[in-house]
Design a protein around this nucleic acid. Sequence first.
DNA 1: AAAGTATTTAGTTAAATGCCTAATTTGTTA
DNA 2: TAACAAATTAGGCATTTAACTAAATACTTT
Lengths: 124, 124
Amino acid sequence: MLNMHQKIKIFKALGNETRFLIFKNVFTGGYTCSIDKKDPKVKVSPHATCVSTIAEHFEFSLPTISKHLKELREANIVTMEKKGNKIYIEPNIETVRELGGCFTTLVENFEENRELFFGDVAMS
Amino acid sequence: MLNMHQKIKIFKALGNETRFLIFKNVFTGGYTCSIDKKDPKVKVSPHATCVSTIAEHFEFSLPTISKHLKELREANIVTMEKKGNKIYIEPNIETVRELGGCFTTLVENFEENRELFFGDVAMS
DNA sequence: AAAGTATTTAGTTAAATGCCTAATTTGTTA
DNA sequence: TAACAAATTAGGCATTTAACTAAATACTTT
């Protein structure tokens, strides 16, 4: 279960446009890893990409992107695994699923409390 | 539908411990509005509370809390309605439900793509 | 209308964030 | 082993954030 500080860390990570876009594209497979096209031996998931490939999609310097990735990893919403020279970034679906569940629970509990208080009718 | 910048605004709002706690307690009814106990004529939902009541739960000054609330309101995750002298803060369940839905969709799409790519088996 | 209550605005300050370039580390290839 | 490639660390700088106090605004009550 995600505790409060873990959640805050995730929100902080996603509350920046650059990190949000990285997160989005890592999850949806939006980054084609140009390095792997040259080197198809490396077996990675279709979502995997690496630091320099991500950086190609931004105007920012490589160290800046590297720092953003570190924050996404520390928030535990992506994983980073070193294979040889490169670091492969992949989405951490478990954390995102859990976070989604928190929102669902919050909404459900709210509805339930509202029904208990106001009776089983829509509030106006 | 929440666009990217609206989502980023929400994440930025929730990526601060004070605002996260305010949000949490506004949603779960964690703040008893001491003012309303003295003035029970005012009809508000069980979740409604007001700025000074929220501020009582923190060490921070009233203006600081006021500014945090402004940010939560601008992120559209709480509503603020003036009734006489006071401003009543309530959760905005619609926005939270929608955000939760985004996470659910993200996870579902991910699962689906994984199945399409790897076949209907768990990845190891 | 004067005093009181609730909240916001203004102006200041310290700390955090986000960016850069240069240098370093780690692993690969010629 | 020397050069190359991928990524991180270090150090510096500008902007933003989060806090404060004091002052202003907007209602309500006496």
